[in-house]
Design a protein around this nucleic acid. Structure first.
Lengths: 186, 186
DNA sequence: TTGCCCATGTAACCAGTTACATGATTCA
DNA sequence: TGAATCATGTAACTGGTTACATGGGCAA
């Protein structure tokens, strides 16, 4: 990820963090505390070159890919390696066990899940213009693809929440509707 | 998860592991090495009671929920807590950066992702009968819901892979088609 | 001159994993 | 009697996090 983001134009650790935040955070996160040690390791391995601004020491060191770094990134990308799919979602765990609680609470759990997916869709759609712009200007359209995958996932979740609710008596009259609920924590 | 699985009828650590494997492993995993210490901790906290078979020491100790354990599970399920969505998917990371590699390799990466989702859908559909049976016999249908969510996710991935490929020249003739590729590692 | 954002760095911790070790039971 | 499966247990590691610390530049 670090090499990839520098390949896409990130120059400092700080910018890497930001780019992750507005691009791949839906399916990959990286904490700031990992980035700086990684940069040093990659530089030590000859995959990155840093150019410190001599006028001051604290301003962002700018990193660029060395030829070896470009090559390492490329070979990693094309490598046919196992790609395990790892999802950890407490919401789904709770939903799975939700037959053990009363229908009212199960209903608001479902509402919380739906609400969360709504929020995720909104957050992802907010960065869509950036991806579209990138595609229009440079032809790089894979970021659009991964973004759409994120959106599609949460739209599917919302759809299934709705379908499940309808199959359970439609307007649950014994229950406060979601509109009156305090917004569930996400 | 441990309390929940025992609530659903798992009696031993071994059975918990198995139940996770055939139910929630799509969105939550738990390694065997965690389970036994957890069981002891939960028993120490008075949430579980164990009944060792006196005739031999190695046979599965059977655990049951104490009233306090039932209550703890229930309050956890209805608790309005943050439910962060955590996905880590190397495949999506590679796809995101795939504009940096040549179209042929990008294409086979896409094929690998599609193939993986196909496999996931198949694996999930294989356990659908179990969930259906549970719903028919006991009325517990939330496991069906979470299962469908897993399936829907991967179907959406497959759909987007196809759409993306079509938008990129349809039958990529410069490329071996997926049918001729060795099955990509997953 | 205060406060906020940019930017880097690190110590301490921790959840969870891999790998290994062991023993009982069942079945061919 | 040997292999496979059921079943439990633990040591060692590790990838990653939180929290804290620092310091420069800029704008009100």
């Amino acid at each position: 990820v670090v090499l990839g983001m520098i390949g896409l134009g990130a120059k400092s650790g700080y910018e890497i963090k930001q780019m992750v935040q507005i691009s791949i955070r839906f399916f990959w996160t990286i904490s700031q505390a990992q980035i700086y040690p990684s940069l040093r390791r990659l530089e030590g391995a000859g995959l990155l070159a840093s150019h410190a601004d001599p006028r001051n020491k604290r301003r962002p060191r700018t990193f660029t890919l060395t030829p070896a770094g470009s090559e390492a990134l490329r070979t990693w990308l094309i490598r046919d390696q196992p790609m395990p799919f790892e999802l950890r979602d407490i919401a789904m765990v709770k939903l799975f066990f939700a037959d053990g609680i009363d229908p009212a609470h199960a209903h608001s759990l479902l509402a919380a899940v739906r609400h969360r997916s709504h929020a995720q869709v909104a957050a992802l759609q907010a960065i869509a213009p950036t991806a579209d712009e990138l595609a229009a200007q440079t032809g790089k359209d894979h970021p659009q693809l991964t973004l759409q995958m994120g959106i599609a996932y949460h739209q599917a979740m919302i759809h299934l929440c709705d379908a499940f609710e309808h199959s359970h008596g439609g307007t649950a009259k014994g229950k406060p509707t979601k509109a009156h609920n305090p917004p569930p924590t996400v």
